[in-house]
Write a protein that binds this DNA or RNA. Structure first.
Lengths: 260, 260
DNA sequence: TTTCCGAAAGCTGTACACAACTCGAAATGG
DNA sequence: CCATTTCGAGTTGTGTACAGCTTTCGGAAA
């Protein structure tokens, strides 16, 4: 009864390949020797999950800014598939609150107001606490190494701020933190809410001081990494919660105005 | 900025028609005078949401017991539609963790173990607390009236226990409680986790004492209703949390054995 | 010049046929 | 008689054409 047992509940989400998205097990797919016990590992599911992650990243990195009208046909031809399987992906993105499709108009990248976001931020703060309370996992060597690598990247970024690298590091840091919780439903929900908020924050970054934001984030990584090194997940969760709160506060102060 | 403002985030879920599912506004749909500002109110979306609720109820009331193989073609013909829009519904149910589709085999109603469910129950307990803490809504007259009606139905049910009526009342009571929270994302997540667990509980009811379970549930409704009448949502949430905890405990004691 | 109407273009939603895949049963060779 | 292979029924996944809806642009009338 190992890790594979709870795959049914996790089946809701596409296989997490991480933001880096290095290709996993290419040989296994080519030879068709995928593990028949794992329903997630089928050629169709692999393409589906990859597309979900790809498009989600494009939306959350503002490659598709809020309000963008996506063309199903264009995307389908870009990925070399038909509209039918693509629509399944778009449906999932819509269920994540990142898209909305209306007949006769198009598929539009959503844009949410800071007011509505307040509820999501409140919830994210509470869930951050729960990461420390509910089934915290003692970090393994790989997690610690990942955290240290992120800390180093954060320090490099502080020396040379860059919006896009900032966003990517933010996403990877989130996923690293998720490795510290053994509660799969909590991870899934946290991820959903995270992706709902991160692009709004990225959109408002122009109204904030990028260098200051990067410095604060580098500190956050450093603090969380220290806590993880000590195996104190509750402390890491508390730090995370505090930074979510402060991030929302800064958004309301500086980024919430009548933009543009 | 009333209720309609946060429809974008809520767009993830089909329009909640309640378990009773009385038809809503049939005239508006027939005449095509649906509010153009609300993206959820389109003829296609209406059918979609209705189908989602219908099939979810069938799964969660064990009309389709865990392990059942559903036929896309049969369902499509039953509802007088093609497989294409039906598959969208099935995809949503799969994202909710209630179905799993595998090529060449079929669409199968999931069955989860009590072990995996422990994480969901833990999370549900914490979220129940949050219902009282995050944006609790002072109950309006309609909510109080609904609660009182449910309390009465609970007392009637205690006098004449019936599994299916029990399940329906349980679902409706959950939705009534959700009216007390103004946090839309929290409501959505709570609903998702609730539906993931309720059918497992219903499946194990045969191993428990139905009369006793009904009596306990009637008490829960009564206590929560009293708290709601006083406007003390935090108290209602605490009561709810306690009952979720006790329900899980009873499941582990009596219903968790090597069934059948 | 302004306003209103209508046709056309473009989009998502739907239906249907076919491909890809799984599983089981029947046939075949040992 | 048993093991192995092959074929077929049945299922989900995919491609494609068309229907329904919305927006826009052009032209005619006031």
């Amino acid at each position: 009864m190992g890790r594979t047992a709870n795959c049914l509940i996790a089946a809701a989400r596409p296989r997490n390949l991480g933001p880096g998205g290095h290709g996993g097990t290419p040989e296994a797919e080519r030879h068709g020797i995928s593990n028949p016990k794992d329903p997630q590992t089928s050629p169709a599911r692999e393409r589906y999950a990859l597309l979900c992650d790809t498009l989600r990243d494009r939306i959350c990195l503002l490659d598709y800014p809020p309000g963008t009208r996506l063309s199903e046909e264009a995307l389908a031809s870009e990925f070399g598939i038909s509209r039918t399987p693509l629509r399944r992906v778009l449906g999932w993105l819509e269920s994540q609150g990142l898209l909305v499709s209306v007949q006769g108009v198009g598929t539009i990248v959503t844009d949410v107001e800071l007011e509505e976001l307040a509820q999501v931020y409140q919830l994210r703060m509470e869930l951050a606490d729960l990461i420390g309370k509910l089934s915290p996992l003692p970090p393994d060597a790989e997690t610690v190494a990942l955290m240290r690598s992120l800390r180093q990247r954060g320090q490099k970024l502080a020396a040379e701020p860059d919006t896009r690298s900032f966003a990517r590091l933010n996403i990877e840091f989130f996923h690293a933190l998720m490795r510290c919780s053994g509660n799969a439903p909590l991870r899934e929900i946290s991820e959903r809410l995270y992706y709902q908020t991160t692009r709004i924050w990225l959109k408002s970054i122009s109204h904030l001081d990028l260098a200051e934001e990067v410095a604060i984030f580098a500190d956050e990584i450093n603090d969380v990494c220290t806590a993880v090194e000590l195996g104190d997940i509750m402390a890491a969760a508390s730090i995370r919660r505090a930074h979510i709160s402060m991030s929302f506060w800064r958004l309301g102060q500086n980024g919430g105005g009548p933009a543009e």
